[in-house]
Amino acid sequence: MHLKDMTGLQLMQAFAQGKLPGPAITTTMPMDCVEAEHGRVLFTATANESHTNAMGGVHGGFAATILDSVTGCATHTVLGPGETYATTDLSIKMCRPLPFNKAVFSEGKVINAGRNLVISEGYIRDEAGKVYAHATATCMIIRPAAAA
C-alpha cells in the first residue's frame, strides 16, 4: 500500500508500530509516537542539552514543537486517504519548566472534527501525571485536487 492510499490513522499506527521511520523532525526533537487510535495519539519525548535556552533551561520551543506535533497527529488520525492538514492556530500554556533527559508523555486528542477544520488539544505530562504544558490547535483539512 502506498502512503497516499493510507488513511491518517493507518499512517499514524504504522509510525507507532515502527513499520515506518519517523519524520526527520524526530532527530532534532527526540519524540516517538507510541500509540495511535481514532482521534488520539500518545508520544514520548525527551529534551536534552541541545534544547537549551539562553537561561540554561529547556527552550519553550521544544514544548511548542511537541504540542504542535501531537495536536496535528491527532488531527491526522481522523483524515481519509490523501488528505493532509495545516495548523492554522496553536495556543500554548506553559505550566512549569520541562526537565532535561527525562521522558515525558504528550497526548493529543481531537475535540471536534468538522468538514474543513479540526480542533484538538494536547498535554505534556510526566509519569506521575504532572502537567508541564497544554495546547489547543485548529487545523485546516487539505484535500487532494479532483482528477480532471
Rank of each mutant, 00 (worst) to 15 (best):
142 I>F: 03
14 A>Y: 12
42 L>C: 10
120 S>Y: 14
82 G>W: 01
40 R>G: 06
117 L>M: 14
40 R>C: 14
111 I>L: 15
126 D>Q: 06
30 P>H: 10
22 G>K: 07
5 D>P: 01
55 M>H: 11
25 I>F: 11
62 F>P: 04
84 T>G: 10
106 S>N: 03
103 A>V: 08
63 A>Y: 00
102 K>W: 01
108 G>S: 08
144 P>I: 04
24 A>N: 08
72 G>D: 05
112 N>C: 08
147 A>C: 05
29 M>V: 13
11 L>D: 08
51 H>V: 02
15 F>E: 07
64 A>H: 08
109 K>Y: 02
44 T>W: 05
95 C>H: 12
78 V>S: 15
133 A>I: 03
129 G>D: 05
32 D>G: 04
114 G>N: 08
99 P>M: 07
70 V>K: 03
12 M>C: 15
39 G>W: 05
38 H>P: 06
74 A>C: 06
136 T>D: 09
34 V>F: 10
35 E>H: 09
23 P>V: 00
145 A>D: 03
47 A>F: 08
23 P>M: 05
91 S>W: 06
91 S>E: 10
113 A>C: 14
33 C>A: 13
72 G>T: 00
78 V>T: 15
55 M>Q: 13
130 K>I: 00
32 D>Q: 10
22 G>F: 12
94 M>L: 14
116 N>M: 10
24 A>D: 10
60 G>A: 04
138 T>N: 11
102 K>L: 09
90 L>Q: 08
148 A>Q: 09
84 T>E: 13
38 H>W: 11
105 F>A: 02
128 A>Q: 10
32 D>K: 12
48 N>Y: 04
118 V>C: 12
83 E>L: 09
39 G>D: 10
24 A>M: 11
88 T>Y: 02
92 I>L: 14
124 I>L: 10
57 G>Y: 13
137 A>I: 01
76 H>F: 15
51 H>F: 06
19 K>E: 15
1 M>Q: 12
135 A>E: 09
44 T>C: 07
56 G>L: 00
37 E>L: 02
132 Y>A: 07
102 K>C: 06
24 A>W: 02
12 M>Q: 15
44 T>R: 11
136 T>M: 14
39 G>Y: 03
94 M>E: 03
30 P>Q: 12
101 N>W: 02
41 V>W: 04
16 A>L: 12
86 A>Q: 04
66 I>C: 02
3 L>F: 15
64 A>V: 01
6 M>N: 07
45 A>E: 04
83 E>H: 11
27 T>W: 06
10 Q>F: 01
140 M>R: 09
126 D>K: 05
144 P>V: 04
121 E>V: 04
24 A>L: 12
140 M>I: 03
24 A>Q: 09
13 Q>F: 13
86 A>R: 00
30 P>N: 13
61 G>N: 01
47 A>K: 04
18 G>A: 11
56 G>I: 00
57 G>F: 15
13 Q>V: 05
125 R>V: 07
98 L>R: 01
75 T>G: 15
99 P>Y: 08
17 Q>M: 08
58 V>T: 03
115 R>T: 06
116 N>G: 08
68 D>S: 02
107 E>M: 13
144 P>Y: 03
9 L>A: 11
31 M>W: 05
94 M>P: 02
129 G>S: 07
6 M>S: 11
115 R>W: 06
118 V>I: 12
70 V>A: 05
110 V>C: 08
89 D>R: 11
70 V>E: 03
41 V>D: 02
56 G>H: 07
131 V>E: 10
108 G>Y: 06
59 H>G: 01
13 Q>C: 11
85 Y>K: 01
